[in-house]
Design a protein around this nucleic acid. Sequence first.
DNA 1: CGTCGGCGTAGGGAAAGCGTCAAGACGGGC
DNA 2: GCCCGTCTTGACGCTTTCCCTACGCCGACG
Lengths: 221, 221
Amino acid sequence: MTRVLVVDDEPQLLRALRINLRARDYDVEVAADGTTALRRAGASPPDLVVLDLGLPDIPGIDVIHGLRGWTRVPIIVLSGRAGSQDKVEALEAGADDYVTKPFDIAELVARIRAVTRRVSVTGAGRRVDVGEHTVDLADKTVTGGVHLTPTEWHLLDVLLRNPGKLISQRQLLTAVWGPSYQRETHYLRQYMAQLRRKLETDPAHPRHLLTEPGMGYRFQP
Amino acid sequence: MTRVLVVDDEPQLLRALRINLRARDYDVEVAADGTTALRRAGASPPDLVVLDLGLPDIPGIDVIHGLRGWTRVPIIVLSGRAGSQDKVEALEAGADDYVTKPFDIAELVARIRAVTRRVSVTGAGRRVDVGEHTVDLADKTVTGGVHLTPTEWHLLDVLLRNPGKLISQRQLLTAVWGPSYQRETHYLRQYMAQLRRKLETDPAHPRHLLTEPGMGYRFQP
DNA sequence: CGTCGGCGTAGGGAAAGCGTCAAGACGGGC
DNA sequence: GCCCGTCTTGACGCTTTCCCTACGCCGACG
């Protein structure tokens, strides 16, 4: 199911979107302000963001930058400002589409579908082998009597859902600790070491939880 | 170079688009009606289509269907009709964006950039063959157990995203090290040598990472 | 034939980044 | 209130990566 994060506080819009998107098998989540939006997106990255630029707390353009710092999730901007300068600014900042209020709900839905049509759905298998152990991401269990703490699970989850792919330090920190921790690379070293101790056969020479110096970490199946 | 096929017959729009897109390194081709557009797209598939729905010969929506029958090339629709029903129809038919006339040329350019940016990230073309190795720019992996450092990735990234094209020394230095390093050409020699050692079959006689003496470097697929 | 500019290669010092140990801070359960 | 597991923070040695200098090669040119 495609997950859409809607950043807006108009109940009417939210209700209409929910109805229309549910029917097309989308899951709708909501954030009422920019701070909440960044936190929720970091905690559980959605497949698409619908972002109202008129937020109560922080400028909408900053939310775009905050997201683009670590993810390329598609962003559709809603705004009351119709000036082309505003549009260009938002699009250059990384937005994928810009819709001017007032708009028809059917048009927004059509644009959401147009954007998500391109996104490939990466179906995640829930059981993954790491060395001698087997990790079940859904049941949150590990074979061999290994027990992981919540933070360790969160970190491992991000890595295992992207097998073979390099995940940047910023991306990991944002996903696990939140956007304001993007420079606390120390946490990563700490918890990667713990995961290796618990999962790797030889923690000093990891074969699956690999470091890419200066860039990030990678799960090698 | 990204090739844009513009399907329209207004000389004013064509001229403005040509100027603005050339400056951003796009190549602009033109078709005045739907039949010509389909023929030209078929003969030599462009990277993006800008399609005016008000064509003299066939309905614009049919051009969309005609293209979508065999290609997923991004389509940006221009139209004088602002009704949401028209928009939904075009987007559902497979268009990626819908711009209502009259519009600012800067907005259209920004939307073109937004669409091509998304496609270049998610679409094909992220895997590139260099000699015996295959480089995945998104996952940051190289076949054959080759490992690259962050600076090497950065440099290779710029070259591989412009296959066959000469990249000046200044351009490379600015992209990788910053504008204040434009005269440190020995950095380039240093890191190009490392990339050749790691990727070329015969580093002394490179076949893909070529030097253009006095000018710059070129990636030859 | 010698000089010169541009290029490729090699190697070492400096700095940034990483892994590890250890201890303090915090919060929930008892 | 106390204990225990977990999360944060600090300190230190080690590795990787980067930056910089030096030198040899080659073709152009006078």
